[in-house]
Amino acid sequence: NIFRAAGDLSHLISILILLNTIQKSRSIAGISLKTQILYVLVFLTRYLDLTYRYVSIYNTLMKLFFISSSIYIVYLMIYKFKNTETEQIDTFPIEYLIGGSFILSLIFNYKFQFGEILWSFSLWLESVAILPQLFMLQRTGEARTLTTHYIFALGAYRTLYIPNWIFRWISEGRVDYLAIFTGIVQTIIYSDFFYIYYHRVLKGFKFELP
């Protein structure tokens, strides 16, 4: 359906914006390494099911793209364009996010099986993975416009999945409670950012926190 397609496209675009921003400016200033590491974890724990579950060629290619691009971005950030200044303000304690997601995945899952717990873990972790990045924005008080486009596209992906879930619930009777709940949590975390993005960036102002 259209929401799912738009969501996936937005997800894809967000990664391309980020890669393009890093490659062109040859800098990772303002980008949280911790958030990027969390995304590697999210993609690895959710998408490694492609080794034992086949959905479609589209699904497989997308999974491979997200796993490889997220690892490549972390590689660029650590080895190629290392930025100690940015690292110094990237101080969000992600061990709590990882630990909390792990505990929640043990409590909430569809089956108490390794693959299902990993799937649930990835949903919880994804819902909070942007926090180090938002925290960094808050500390610096402003961001490059391209960085805000990246964060917007990434947030739009999960937000667009919400009407997709409603659509699938009506048309197929399919309900994924875990994905829906964590998707809503994620969207709430983004809501403040969306608001500022809409009021400043889209109207041609610099991204500055009030």
Binding site: Y47, K63, V175
Partner: peptide
């Protein structure tokens, strides 16, 4: 309603 165990989304 059926529970979504097939995980066909990204």
């Amino acid at each position: 309603t059926k529970q979504a165990l097939e995980h066909d989304e990204l």
